[in-house]
Amino acid sequence: MKNIIILFVFLTCLFAKGQAEDNFTWATEAYNEGEFKKAIELYETILEDGQHSAALYYNLGNSYYKLNEIASSIYYYEKALLLSPNDPEILNNLGYAQNMTLDAIDTMPETGLSRIYKMATNRLSFDQWAYVGVFFMFLFVILYILFYYSQYSSRKRWAFIGSFIALFIAIVAVVFAYIQYDDFNKNQPAIVFADEVGINAEPNNKSDEVFVLHAGTKVNVLDELNDWKKIRIADGKTGWITSENIRLLKDF
């Protein structure tokens, strides 16, 4: 009985994967034929089945962009970047979409060290850095075994040097993975979906409006109280917005 259940679950998963691949193919065909709404419906069917990927989010972003739904296109491009940081195609299309938003927000200046740190750690996502760390740790073990059992001095020397280079890279990769994971958990990015919304000084409708945001603007959620969320924008300004006016990016 147990084997039958396992087989049933396996076949169900296999069928779901095959159906998702079919839907992705049909959605891409619909997109290429200019049927963008149909493509969105098929892509979202895949999401409803619990499957997601950078390619899926990227294609959704493209579909919404073609329909001039800029907030939605930015939302899915940003989600794609969470899974595939620094992808040039995603960044390029995201830039086009952002140029169509109304809010021109200056980013806070960064020091040279901060830029170098971000350039280094953001090359890969935290899980990719973890894979790099595991690979080089495995390589370190292999090279150290080779050093230990090798009978030739030249081979022992190169194996010894290689093993410690591999160990150093593994440690750096693990540190970068931890930094990326910590940053990933600390930041709660979201996209504004309201055409225009006032940002309040306090989490209530009676407080003063401190600034206004428009659809497509990216914010970072700092705190929440009831139906309100405290946000910060790129220039450092903070305020409160109702939850219904934004969509969190990390909802997968």
Rank of each mutant, 00 (worst) to 15 (best):
M1Y: 10
M1I: 08
I6Q: 09
V9G: 08
F10R: 01
F10H: 01
L11I: 14
C13V: 14
C13N: 15
F15R: 06
A16I: 09
E21G: 11
D22T: 11
N23R: 13
T25V: 08
E29C: 04
A30I: 11
A30K: 13
N32V: 03
E33V: 04
E35Q: 15
K37E: 15
K37L: 15
K37W: 15
A39I: 00
A39E: 00
L42E: 09
L42T: 07
Y43D: 12
Y43K: 12
L47R: 11
D49W: 12
A55V: 15
L56A: 06
Y57N: 07
N59K: 02
N62D: 13
Y64D: 07
L67Q: 15
N68Q: 05
I70F: 13
A71I: 03
S73N: 02
Y76V: 09
Y76G: 07
E78G: 01
L83A: 06
N86E: 12
P88K: 11
I90Y: 04
N92F: 04
L94A: 05
L94Q: 05
Y96H: 15
Q98W: 02
Q98N: 08
N99I: 14
I105A: 00
I105K: 00
M108P: 11
P109A: 06
T111R: 12
G112N: 12
L113A: 13
R115A: 05
I116W: 10
Y117T: 00
K118T: 07
N122H: 15
R123F: 04
S125M: 04
D127R: 14
Q128I: 07
Y131H: 11
V132N: 02
V134E: 03
F136I: 02
F136S: 02
F136Y: 06
M137Q: 02
F138D: 02
F140A: 01
I142V: 14
L143D: 05
L146T: 12
S150T: 06
S153C: 00
K156Q: 15
S163T: 09
S163C: 12
I165R: 05
I165H: 05
A166G: 01
F168Q: 01
F168R: 00
I169N: 01
V172E: 05
V172D: 04
A173M: 06
A173L: 06
V175Y: 10
F176C: 08
Y181Q: 13
N185L: 14
P189S: 08
P189W: 07
A190E: 04
I191V: 13
D195C: 00
D195T: 07
I199H: 08
A201P: 06
E202F: 13
P203F: 15
P203A: 14
N204C: 03
S207Y: 11
H214C: 09
G216L: 09
T217P: 04
T217V: 09
N220M: 01
N220R: 00
V221I: 15
I231Y: 03
I231C: 03
I231R: 03
A234D: 14
D235E: 13
G236Y: 11
T238I: 04
G239A: 10
W240G: 04
W240H: 07
I241E: 06
S243I: 09
E244P: 09
R247A: 04
K250D: 08
